[in-house]
Amino acid sequence: MKKFWTLCAALLSVVSVASAQTSMSCCAKPAAGPNATETFAMLASNEDFSGGHDAPLPFRYAGGGEMIEFTTTDGGKSKAFEIKSNTRSDKYLFVIHEWWGLNDYIKQEAARFAKELPGTNVIALDLYDGQVAATADEAGKLMQAVKTARAEAIIKGALLHAGPRAQVASIGWCFGGGWSLQTALLAGKQAVGAVMYYGMPEKDVAKLKTLNTDVLMVFAKQDKWINQEVVTEFEKNMKAAKKGLTVKAYDADHAFANPSNPKYSKAMAEDAHAASVAYLKAHLKLK
């Protein structure tokens, strides 16, 4: 319970800040309050949360893949990093970045998945519209500035880019973990899998009932924010929605799978990655 009240205190301390930000879509729908991804974004104002994220070490991705541009459903444009399958395929993995943005670390992760999931098109989306953070302060501001409507338009545009026959799985970390689940919700019948690393779950059971897939959630037991109470509530809500949920728990802290994080655990990160790949292979029906 101590961790639960720590989370509540952190959220309450930033609600007043978030309510003043016109960029948040909750301000356009005050009666409904912030949704799951907006609630998580509010944590960026918490010094304990932002202080737990050291800036990524310098890194330059030099592998394959290319930046693409597609039309979003709000009439705009968005760019993404894509690695196409060597063979014609309608299988897709959408990769959603952490709060740093679509940086070279995410491109490297996309390339790793493309290699381990042959026959799959991998697209790393950019929910920050080209902006990448170099410091925790910058990352917090970018995460808080994300408009739900714009993020959804980007994801929907990527789904249109993939095509109506596409089978779509998703994976994301932290900020991207929550958006991985939202991607599965937006994909409807095209969704075949969703992996979320320490991301804020959707709490609306009615929405969860529309999921076309089960979910794999990677959970860090020492995480102060996506803590045991959050996970237990998600398990309860998924059960109420009659949807499958597998929780992989590790005795680690938030962002333990990020190699640039001081609390990175190579052994646990590799185990979680192996579990994610096995899940994605099964759900994408890869040989």
Rank of each mutant, 00 (worst) to 15 (best):
F59E: 12
R60A: 14
A62H: 15
K77Q: 04
G65I: 00
E82C: 01
I106N: 12
G52I: 00
L93G: 08
D90M: 00
A80M: 01
I96C: 06
G101V: 12
I96N: 13
D104W: 10
K91Y: 02
M67Y: 13
G52K: 03
R60K: 15
G75E: 05
S78E: 00
F59D: 03
G65V: 05
W100E: 05
G76P: 01
F81M: 10
K107R: 14
Y92N: 03
G101Q: 02
F81S: 01
G63K: 15
I83E: 02
K107G: 09
F94P: 00
Y61C: 04
F70S: 08
K79A: 10
V95G: 11
T87Y: 04
H53S: 09
K91T: 06
E66W: 14
D90Y: 01
I96H: 13
V95P: 15
D54P: 10
L102F: 13
R60G: 10
A62V: 15
E69Q: 12
G101W: 05
F94G: 01
F70A: 08
G75M: 12
R88T: 10
W100S: 11
A62L: 15
L57I: 09
G76C: 02
I96D: 08
N86W: 02
K84F: 01
A55M: 04
P56W: 06
D104K: 11
T72P: 04
H97V: 05
S89T: 11
R60W: 08
F70E: 06
R88L: 11
F94Y: 00
Y61D: 11
F81K: 03
K77V: 09
H97P: 04
R88E: 07
S78F: 04
K107L: 08
G63C: 10
E98W: 03
W99H: 01
K84L: 03
D90F: 02
A80W: 05
I83V: 00
R88S: 12
Y105T: 12
K91R: 02
G63Q: 07
L102G: 03
K107Y: 10
G63P: 09
A80P: 05
R88A: 08
E69V: 05
S89V: 03
F70I: 09
G65F: 04
E69C: 07
H97W: 08
G52S: 02
D104L: 04
W99Q: 03
K84Q: 01
K77F: 09
E82V: 06
F70M: 07
D54H: 09
A80K: 01
L57W: 07
W99S: 05
K77G: 00
I106F: 14
K79H: 12
Y105H: 15
P56K: 08
Y92K: 03
K91G: 01
L57E: 14
F59N: 08
I68E: 11
I83N: 10
R88H: 13
K91P: 04
E69P: 06
T87F: 06
Y61K: 15
P56G: 08
T71Y: 09
E66F: 13
G76F: 02
D74G: 02
M67W: 15
K77T: 03
T87A: 11
I106G: 12
R88D: 12
